[in-house]
Amino acid sequence: MCVLCGRDFVGVHWTDRHVEDRALLSGPSGDSSGYQRDRRRDRAHRAALTNAVLRHYGLRVEDWGGSKYLLRDRKGRSEIVQDLGALWPAAARLAGRPLDPLDPALRRALSADDDA
């Protein structure tokens, strides 16, 4: 538990697991600047890919200080989320509907992005 933000860090979301494993592998004497660089790149990459999906719901996510993600809608409402596990419920709250990868409209929109 982080005393500053009150967030419980016990559970590492499975999509973040490879980052944690890499950190443990390198150990305390490991190349921490290399790890930090990789981690930032991973997070930026994830935000970019997630945005390709989120923009069909009028939402946008950005890396927030390298530890959280900031999710916003076009009305200026925002939520801070820890990981992808928390992102989807928050996105559903902001969008007012569940975000479903099987949704035909989303599939059409993503396919159209590819063709563009």
């Binding site: 992808l84 596990g85 419920p89 569940p98 975000l99 990868p101």
Partner: peptide, 9 residues
């Protein structure tokens, strides 16, 4: 992203 989204929905 795809799988976590699918599992959520």
């Amino acid at each position: 992203i795809w799988l976590s989204m699918l599992l959520h929905a």
